[in-house]
Amino acid sequence: MVQLNEEILHKVITKRPEISHKGTFGRVVLIGGNQQYGGAIIMSAEACIKSGAGLTTVITAKENHSALHARLPEAMVVDFSETKLIYQVLDKADVILIGPGLGLAKEMALLLKGILNNQQAEQWLVIDGSAITLFSDYKLSLKFPAQTTFTPHLAEWAHLSGLSFVQQTNENNRAKQALLGAKIVLKSHRTTIYDDAVAYYQNPLGNPGMATGGMGDTLAGMITGFLAQFEKNTDTIAAAVYLHSLIGDALAKDNYVVLPTSISESLPRYMKKFATERN
Rank of each mutant, 00 (worst) to 15 (best):
I13P: 00
S188A: 14
N233Q: 14
M43F: 08
A109L: 04
P145M: 12
A220G: 08
E63N: 07
H65Y: 08
V58G: 00
T236F: 07
V198T: 09
L259Y: 10
L104S: 13
N207Q: 15
T57V: 05
D235E: 14
L72N: 05
K176C: 06
L85N: 08
G209P: 12
P152N: 13
T57R: 01
S188R: 10
T57D: 00
A61D: 15
A211V: 11
G213Y: 06
M43L: 14
F150W: 06
N203T: 04
N203M: 02
E107K: 13
Q123T: 06
L180I: 04
K84T: 14
K143Y: 03
S161K: 02
R71A: 09
Q147I: 02
I96G: 02
T24L: 10
K232V: 06
R269V: 13
H189P: 05
L102G: 00
H69C: 13
I115V: 10
F274E: 00
K113M: 09
I59M: 08
P145W: 14
Q168D: 05
I98Y: 01
W124G: 03
K272R: 10
I86A: 03
Y194N: 01
G99T: 02
D137E: 13
K113H: 11
E18V: 15
V166Y: 12
K62C: 06
K50T: 08
L134G: 03
L72Y: 01
T14G: 05
L205D: 00
P208Y: 12
L180R: 04
A252G: 04
K15D: 13
Y242D: 04
Q123N: 11
R27F: 11
K15T: 15
K253A: 11
I41K: 03
A238F: 00
T60G: 14
Y37D: 00
L30V: 07
A250Q: 14
A240R: 03
E156R: 04
P17R: 08
A45N: 05
K232T: 07
A131C: 07
I86Y: 01
I184L: 13
S188G: 12
Q35A: 07
W124R: 08
E231Q: 11
W157E: 01
G216E: 06
L90V: 09
M222P: 02
A250T: 10
A220Q: 04
V258L: 06
V78M: 02
L112S: 06
V28W: 03
P100W: 01
K143D: 04
